[in-house]
Design a protein around this nucleic acid. Sequence first.
DNA 1: TCAAAAGTGGACGACGGTTTCAACTTCAAA
DNA 2: TTTGAAGTTGAAACCGTCGTCCACTTTTGA
Lengths: 265, 265
Amino acid sequence: MKTEFYFNLLESFPLLWYDGGMSEMHPSRDRPLLRRDAERNRQRILAAARRLIAEQGLEVGYEEIAREADVGVGTVYRRFPNRDGLYYELFHDRVDTVVGILEDALAVEDPWEGLCQFMRRDFELQSSDRGLREFMLGHASSTELRQRSGERIQPLVAELVARARATGRLRPDVGQGDIEIILGMVGGLMDASIHVDPDLWRRYLAMVLDGIQSGSRHDEIPGKPPDQPEIEQILAGWVPPRRGKSRPRDTEPSARVDTRSKAES
Amino acid sequence: MKTEFYFNLLESFPLLWYDGGMSEMHPSRDRPLLRRDAERNRQRILAAARRLIAEQGLEVGYEEIAREADVGVGTVYRRFPNRDGLYYELFHDRVDTVVGILEDALAVEDPWEGLCQFMRRDFELQSSDRGLREFMLGHASSTELRQRSGERIQPLVAELVARARATGRLRPDVGQGDIEIILGMVGGLMDASIHVDPDLWRRYLAMVLDGIQSGSRHDEIPGKPPDQPEIEQILAGWVPPRRGKSRPRDTEPSARVDTRSKAES
DNA sequence: TCAAAAGTGGACGACGGTTTCAACTTCAAA
DNA sequence: TTTGAAGTTGAAACCGTCGTCCACTTTTGA
């Protein structure tokens, strides 16, 4: 019997296999044991990806991750043949965090306060990690995980909304879907403004929360209006700059029209 | 004297030159006369770009614009050596439109109503044109024009805000900068949701407007909360999908690990 | 210690977009 | 009608990124 135990194990229980990163189907099962060096590299890749994605967003190149992890690109591709798998590994446990936040929020006596606390803490969670932000907002990849996350999260949000509405504090014409859209809307702002003023989102979240409660409670709006230079910076970051950075060419375009003709005459 | 009059003209008044598309510096001056065929092509290019950018956003390829205009790529590059110039030509007159909207709004008796009307009509303007939306939100290119637009627009907005605040209807802790951020925030939502529900932005604009007035006037929130499939679609469109569309590879990733070893044994 | 399976790395081809350019066509002044 | 500059064209070079492939190295059980 020359078979290595881990390979044997895989043959016997194919459903337990490490599925090449497409772990969406059975995320809580064990991965097969990797050879020690492979496992070490896997962890280095994850650590590098976590670092880079947290600061640059989901779209960092595999090339760069590999460099950061001090590993070849091939290795990254072997371990995570597609981004879904990588994102899954990086983010699936965050779902638990969000669920935890929701449970905390449901435990608050005043459901309206609970709803506010949920939204606030959700943003606080996202504020440290651009990749997480993009992921939660709804990136094209990783639809699988997001959908399954939604199945855990939505009922809790619905419950929170129902309770808040029952107390009369939440306007009756605001539904669960609105909360999700508001999360996206303010999240989008946060993504744009985070490097200018990491707490700016609190201001606009407060405004919206004021807008969706039926009493005119008028909680104080935190912070102060951004000034012009800040706005400039925020807007500039809103739509992400073009990927293939187009070199600006020579800066003086007008004087060129006739260089040739002059020379030829 | 063999000189064509238009070339002569350029030599004499270099400041009047068509500046290769970088018209930011003196936009209201005449362009030099182009040869008739060149002018015709220029218009075809602009028309094509207008069409494509309105529906696909700022980043359509020059290749595609050229195809649509039935012109060679080279021609497009000759006419618009950089995107700034193209965007300028497409959008600079929109600034007048916005200024018009602002003047209308300032003419409304109730300054608060004026402010609301301005925001509503600004969004209505943007809703028909994805490129305009991206441009106004603050695309990396075209910083020049946007800055100069700001100089015309901001004072008017400031005036509107000041008046609305003077009546007491606008909360005193809301400033001009807030309005611009709100425009961006709701604009981001509109961009994401427009193909799902072109009027969804009205709902969230209404919420925010409710949140920033000091009385609890509670205007009706138009529309109704989006349902789950709609939200799914909206979120999926929020962060633009990766440019180089990654082909999903073969859908069955796990069974592949050992194909080679099997074959070789 | 050794063989063979697992794992590695980076050169390489594909791709999609941008930019150039030399050969060609069109225009309009004379 | 002629002439020469202006204008056009599209193929080809270029560029950055993605994902694959395979000759090479490492690990592991015996």
